[in-house]
Design a protein around this nucleic acid. Sequence first.
DNA 1: CGCGTTTGACCAGCGC
DNA 2: GCGCTGGTCAAACGCG
Length: 306
Amino acid sequence: MEEAWVSTSLGLDLNTDPHRSNELNLGLEFNFMDPQKKTSTSIKDEAGDLEAELKRVRRENEKLEMMLGVMTENYITLQNKVAQLAREREEREATTTKKRKEEALHNTDSSSSEEESCKKPRESAKKPCVSRAYVRTDPSDHSLVVKDGYQWRKYGQKVTRDNPSPRAYFKCSFAPRCPVKKKVQKKADDPTVLMATYEGEHTHPPPTPHDLLTPLTHNLPVSLPSTALPVFSGAIPREATFPVIKPNFRKIGHGFEEKIDSVCDFPQLLIQQLASTLTKDPNFNTVLAAAITGHTSSLGMSRRDP
DNA sequence: CGCGTTTGACCAGCGC
DNA sequence: GCGCTGGTCAAACGCG
Ligand SMILES: [Zn+2]
C-alpha cells in the first residue's frame, strides 16, 4: 500500500519513465514532498532508509566507475605493450621466413642475405606498428564499429576476396597529425567477432573523453586549435576510458562532479592483476561492457527496453 | 551549412 | 602486359 503510494509519487515526479531511476536526485525531493502529504513515520523511516541506500548505491556506483576507469587505463597500457611485443615477434618471424623463402627461391646467390633486407626496407617502413584486436559484437550489428576510445573517420570500404563481409577503413580523426589507421572486418569463420587491425601509433593522448562524452553538459575551453596538441594537462580523467567501454555510461556519472578521487581506496594491485589477466582476452571490452551494464541495472535501474 | 559517411573510381603491387 | 586484389581518394549524399 505504502509502496504503491510512494511509487506513484515517484512516477509523477519523473517524466515518463517510472521504471528508470533518477532516484539519486529523486530520493531527496521525494523526501520533501512527504511531509506535505499525509505521512506516517514508517514511511518516513522507509524513505530515510531508501535514501541512505541510494546514497550507498551511488557511492558504490562511483567507485565502480572509477575502478572501471583505472582498469581500462591499465588495460590500454598493457594492450599497447602486448601489441608492441607481438609486433616485434611478428617482424622477427617475418624476417626469418622471408629470408628462408628467398634463399629457397634464388639458391644462386648465397652470399648476401643482408642485401635483400636492404632491398626491401620499405616493407618494414610501411608497417611501423601493426596490432590486432578482436571484439565480439551483436551478430545483427552490421556497423563495423569498434569502440576503442579513439575517434575515427571512415574513408573506405571494400569487399575482400576471402571474406564475405566487407572491410572498413578508418583514419584517426586527428589525421593528418596522427597517422594511425585501422581496418575493421568481421572474421570469416565467426561473423560475430570483429577483427580490428591498427597501423601506427597515436600521437596524442588516448581519448578525448569530454569531447565525446559531454557535448551538452559543459563546453571545454579547448577547441583544439590546429597548432596545439590536444592538451591533457595532468592525468587523464577517469571518465576518459568510458567511451571505450560504453558511451551510455555518461548517464551514470552525469551531474556528479564530486571529488571522488579516492583511487587509493581500491586494491590497485588487484586491479592491475585483473587488467593484465584480462588483457589476454580480446573480448574484454565487450564482456566488460555487458557486465557493467548488467551490474548497473541490477544496482538501481530497471532495464529499459524500447 | 558543416561534417562525417557512402560508394564508385582510381592507383599500385603482385602473380601469371 | 594483363588481370586481380587491396588500399585510397573524392564527389555525392545524409544528418544535425
Ligand atoms: Zn590518433
